[in-house]
């Protein structure tokens, strides 16, 4: 599903240049649930953003589902993001003047799906994350956990190939974090490929594979026994 080879990325700041990713080789199969760990500043977000086509690498190759991701125009990148990827952010990134269902329907709108079908689909995904009754509420009327669930529904709505989550539980307390992880596990159970960046060991162990990043390279890549989040919920 994801295939990257010798990926490099540095940030230039004035005359200095900060080499963040120093040759990442990494592949993810269909249906995997991967945790990306590492200390702060190790380049986790940078990697995820490159995978999400929000940023571009300096060198190296990236294939997504066999499609080479290289030299994309902004329009093409937007199209690919819409079709292939779903984003889940630490700070939820819901649009505050749109209610839950409108937020979820947004990626479908960019696919030019008709209004009615959009509403139906968005409602279906809200139901999946258990927020059907909250469909017409604005983000400001939702709790952190609920917001993140709306964001997950939104990421799922366009039925992307890969879900990318950058510290999805970073802003949530542990109970709510487990609820969100429970949801992510369930989505993964249905065969969706998911990458989760996290700081927290317990969250990482709820994935099936942990990749450790240090100083811009992968220092450890191991399969783990998945801890089900469901047992901590309720």
């Amino acid at each position: 599903m994801i295939e990257i080879k010798d990926l490099h990325k540095s940030y230039r700041m004035g005359s200095n240049s900060l080499h963040v990713l120093k040759g990442i080789n990494f592949s993810v199969e269909d249906g995997e649930l991967v945790a990306i760990m590492g200390s702060s500043g190790s380049g986790k977000s940078t990697l995820l953003n490159i995978l999400g086509m929000l940023d571009v690498a300096d060198s190296g190759s990236y294939h997504l589902d066999g499609v080479p991701i290289k030299d994309l125009s902004e329009t093409k990148a937007a199209q690919y993001r819409n079709k292939f990827l779903g984003f889940i952010f630490q700070s939820f990134n819901l649009i505050n003047y749109k209610n839950a269902i409108e937020n979820v329907a947004l990626p479908l709108y960019y696919q030019r799906i008709g209004r009615k079908e959009r509403q139906e689909k968005a409602l279906k995904y809200l139901e999946r994350v258990g927020l059907k009754q909250w469909a017409t509420h604005l983000p400001s009327e939702l709790s952190g956990g609920q917001k993140q669930r709306v964001a997950i529904a939104r990421a799922m709505a366009a039925e992307p190939k890969v879900l990318l989550a950058d510290e999805p539980t970073g802003a949530l307390d542990s109970t709510t974090s487990y609820e969100v992880m429970d949801l992510i596990q369930k989505i993964n159970d249905e065969g969706n490929t998911i990458l989760v960046v996290t700081h927290e060991e317990d969250i990482a162990h709820m994935c099936k594979r942990i990749v450790h990043l240090k100083d811009g390279v992968i220092v450890e890549d191991k399969m783990v026994e998945q801890v089900r989040a469901a047992q901590y919920v309720q």
Binding site: G52, L54, E74, T75, A78, Q79, R81, N82, K83, F87, N93, L94, I95, L106, P107, Y110, Q111, R154, A158
Partner: peptide, 16 residues
């Protein structure tokens, strides 16, 4: 700006 960033992450084209 942030909202526009979100929209673009979700796949809205620059022209739109």
């Amino acid at each position: 700006t942030k909202e526009i960033g979100i929209r673009r992450a979700l796949g809205e084209s620059p022209w739109s």
